[in-house]
Lab assay of single mutants.
Amino acid sequence: STVKVRLGHLEVTLHNVSEEDVRELRELWKNGADEEDLRRWLEEWKK
């Protein structure tokens, strides 16, 4: 499914993403990950 995730002022649209992935991303964000960390996660996730 396609999910729009809003993290601060960063809005990311993920395609074919699982609930688990979204949860993981939100956890990262809650734990103080900055945009760099999130971008890195997204790069990994896209592979």
Rank of each mutant, 00 (worst) to 15 (best):
E43D: 12
W41R: 02
L14C: 04
E11H: 11
E36W: 07
E43N: 11
R6Q: 12
L28C: 04
N16S: 05
R26Y: 15
L10E: 13
L25R: 00
R39M: 13
E36Q: 13
G8T: 03
R39I: 12
K46S: 13
E20D: 13
G8N: 05
K46V: 13
V3Q: 03
K47V: 08
R26P: 00
R6P: 02
L38Y: 04
V22C: 07
R39A: 09
N16M: 05
A33F: 06
V22A: 10
S18K: 10
A33K: 03
H9Y: 11
N16P: 02
K4S: 10
E11D: 08
W41L: 03
T2P: 04
S18E: 04
L42D: 00
R39N: 06
D21Q: 11
E35P: 07
H15I: 08
R6E: 04
L38M: 07
G32F: 04
R39G: 04
N31C: 05
W45M: 05
R26M: 15
V3C: 07
W45P: 01
G8V: 03
L10V: 13
K46M: 15
S18T: 11
L28I: 08
E43V: 10
E20W: 05
E44F: 12
L25W: 03
E36S: 12
S1Q: 14
K46C: 05
E36K: 12
R6T: 13
G32K: 05
K47W: 07
L42H: 02
E19G: 05
V17G: 03
R6A: 07
R23Q: 12
H15N: 07
R6N: 07
L10Q: 10
R40A: 11
V12S: 01
D37I: 14
V3E: 02
G32Q: 05
D21N: 08
D21H: 13
K46E: 09
S18Q: 07
W45L: 06
V17D: 00
N31A: 10
H15W: 09
N16R: 05
E35W: 09
L14D: 00
W29C: 03
E20I: 07
S18W: 03
E44W: 13
L10M: 12
H9E: 14
D21G: 10
L14W: 02
R39L: 13
E19D: 13
N31Y: 06
T13E: 08
R23Y: 13
R6H: 10
E11W: 15
D34E: 10
R6S: 10
R26Q: 13
A33H: 04
V3R: 03
D34Y: 06
L28V: 03
D34Q: 10
R26C: 08
G8M: 03
E19K: 08
V12M: 09
R26A: 12
E24R: 14
S1L: 15
G8D: 04
A33S: 06
N31I: 05
E35M: 08
E27C: 14
E27D: 09
A33C: 06
L7V: 14
W45Y: 12
T13H: 08
H9G: 13
E24S: 14
K47N: 10
N31H: 10
D34W: 04
E11V: 13
V3M: 08
S18H: 06
L7R: 02
R26H: 14
D34T: 14
L38P: 01
E36M: 12
G8I: 02
D37Q: 15
